[in-house]
Every structure is written in C-alpha cells, then in structure tokens.
C-alpha cells in the first residue's frame, strides 16, 4: 500500500515536471497559429479557432530566415566536424602516443576547461579583430574548432579500449592512422555520437558569440536572427513564435532521434547540461 502511494506520488511529480517543461513549447506552438488578437487574450486560449499557418509564411517573409538557417547549418556543420577531427587526433595522442611533455600539456589543457567561457569573449574578440576576421564565417567557426571538453571525453573512451586490440591491429599491419580511423573510432561510436550531438546543439543555439562577431544580416545565425526579429516584429507574438518554432524544430527532431546518445553523453561526462 505504502509502495503504491509512493509510486503514484512519483508519477504525479514527474508528470507535473514534464508539464511545466512542455508548457512553453506548447504555448509557442499554439501561439504560432493564433490570430493577432488571440495572442493577447486573457485568459489565454490554448487551441486557436482557426489554425493560421500563414503566420509562418509571413514570419519567414519578414526576415531572411532562410539565410539565417543556411548560416546556422554551415556554422554548425563545419564547427562540429572540425572540432571532432581535431579532438579525435588529440585524444588519440593523449591516450596512446608518448611524447615529451604529454602530461604537463594535458594538465594545462585541463586547466583551460576551468576558465569560464564568458571570460574568453573579449580576448577572443580582440584576437579575431586583429586577424581581420570579424564579420566573416571564420569568426563564427575558427574559435570553436578545438574543444578540450571533447578531447577529454574521447580520451577517456579511447583509454578504455584494451591495449591488445591496438597490438592486434599493429600485428595485422595497421598503421596508427589506420588503427585510429578503422578500429578505434568505430569502436568508440557511441561516445563520438554523444559529443557530436552535444556540440551540434551547442553550436546551433550559440547566441552571445555570433552576436558579438557579426553585425551584418548576411552572417546572422538563427538565434541572432531571431533576436533581431524580436525588435523588428515588435509585439506580433504569433509571428515571433512561428519563427521560434522554425528555429528549434531541427533540434527537436535531432533530440527525438538521438535522445539515447544525448542522455548517455551527459551522464557519461557529467559535465555539460
């Protein structure tokens, strides 16, 4: 009996939590289909009388969201792939190769993880402006091509692969390069997927940095574009919510398909939320 009560209580709390989390999403979805007067009605209505899909068309017409979308896709793809490439190589070096100063270097890199990202915004901005990269894709991409968080996570995984597999590959005639890409990377697939997903979400949602290093419409990514749209669209909540839906839609799809890896990635590293 006691157990049952606890069970019911647990589910009630979970459902409440889920409802609170979902509320803004549902409000966004429903508002994106409302007419202008409906959006400000009190008490709020949840299901609009007529589903006004034209809000999406109008929102996309009002600002170059397609351009923003393309920018986001480019930045996210290049950053993620680039970062993955450098991180895999670095993680391999830290886990398998022996070189002078390996441990000291590792500790120094580890130290960089303890510096809050906000502190790096100004120095990074200054560096990039000296390199005349402000207002280019380079500014959006280059600073994120290396991530020690990813290196660290991959190194842990690479280290858990038994030495004997490495020796077997060597005996079978594989070079280090071959072993890395044809044995180690496929074996570590789940961790690599997890860090990739985390990076994609991070890149896609990045706001502060793209806002600072770009000031032309042509280079805006979706989050920055959305922010700009807020001031343009003013209080037209329906349009605003239509645009927001458009922005988060890819991430929701990604999440639905890869949630297993995202949860694994977060619980494995315990570092990122």
């Amino acid at each position: 009996m006691k157990l049952k009560v606890a069970m019911v209580l647990r589910y009630v709390i979970l459902i409440l939590g889920a409802a609170i989390m979902l509320m803004p999403f549902l409000w966004m979805l429903s508002t994106s289909l409302k007419t202008q007067p409906e959006t400000v009605k009190i008490p709020p209505i949840w299901i609009p009388k007529h589903l006004l899909f034209s809000n999406y068309v109008n929102a996309l017409k009002e600002a170059p969201f397609v351009q923003y979308f393309i920018n986001s896709v480019i930045v996210t793809t290049v950053t993620t792939l680039g970062q993955l490439f450098t991180s895999i190589l670095a993680a391999f070096a830290f886990s398998r190769l022996n070189f002078y100063g390996k441990n000291i270097l590792f500790v120094i890199f580890l130290g960089t993880m303890m510096v809050p990202g906000e502190m790096l915004i100004i120095p990074n901005f200054v560096t990039l402006s000296k390199m005349h990269l402000i207002n280019t894709y380079g500014a959006l991409i280059i600073p994120w091509l290396a991530s020690f968080f990813t290196v660290f996570t991959l190194r842990q995984t690479f280290q858990s692969v038994p030495d004997q597999i490495y020796y077997a590959a060597k005996i079978d005639g594989a070079s280090d390069w071959h072993y890395l890409w044809h044995v180690l990377v496929p074996i570590s697939k789940s961790t690599i997927t997890a860090v990739t997903v985390l990076q994609v979400i991070g890149s896609w949602n990045a706001f502060m940095w793209p806002l600072i290093v770009t000031n032309t419409e042509k280079l805006r990514t979706l989050p920055v574009g959305l922010q700009a749209f807020t001031s343009d669209a003013g209080t037209n909540y329906a349009w605003l919510m239509a645009a927001s839906t458009f922005v988060i839609f890819p991430m929701v799809v990604l999440y639905i398909f890869l949630q297993k890896y995202i949860i694994a990635g977060i619980s494995k590293t315990g570092l990122k939320g």
């Binding site: 038994p162 004997q164 020796y167 005996i171 044995v183 496929p186 074996i187």
Partner: peptide
C-alpha cells in the same frame, strides 16, 4: 607474425 591474444582482441565492430 600472426598473434592470438588472451582476450582474443577481435575488432568488436
């Protein structure tokens, strides 16, 4: 040389 290891060291993937 060909080598067989104690834990077989097969490529799991």
């Amino acid at each position: 040389v060909g080598m067989v290891f104690q834990n077989y060291a097969l490529y799991p993937h």
